[in-house]
Amino acid sequence: MSSDKSGFEPRIVAFLCNWCSYTGADLAGTARMKYPANVRTIRVMCSGRVDAQFVMKAFAEGADAVLISGCHTPSDCHYQEGNFKALRRYYLLKKMLPQFGIEPERLRLEWISAAEGDKFQEVCTEYTEQIKKLGPSPVKKGVKNG
């Protein structure tokens, strides 16, 4: 993948909950909707499973952005309230990320239901465009430890 500004292809890690967003992504697939290959998905059972460590690890491994997606609040969560946990962690992380030099826009939270294949496609497309404009993650060009 080219890293020069014009041909920059961001790498976005998407944590998708099994019941809504991953199924929504699946629906996008069965409906033959294309979304950018920049989005690389990791299935978790619930957005409440997403540990802030996963997000930090993803950035440390060179992700240009991280997308967390779960079932719609307040009542769609397959596990009743896992999505609220994700929501809370998201805001706290978003406050902390700039302290590590990472733009808060590089973390995004979305609610995508199992029926919203098109929304999944839209979010992926739009977010990829947004990150392309924002440029590569500072982690890659940043000073390595030492």
């Binding site: 802030a52 930090m56 962690r89 805001y91 902390m96």
Partner: peptide, 29 residues
């Protein structure tokens, strides 16, 4: 079992917020 102490604490601490909407969460943050 934990590598990143701060991130892990975010996961634990934020779970305890008494908040269900964006505004409520932001207010606590």
């Amino acid at each position: 079992n934990v590598y990143d102490q701060g991130a892990k604490f975010i996961s634990a601490l934020a779970s305890l917020f008494d908040a269900k909407t964006d505004e409520e969460v932001q207010a606590i943050v």
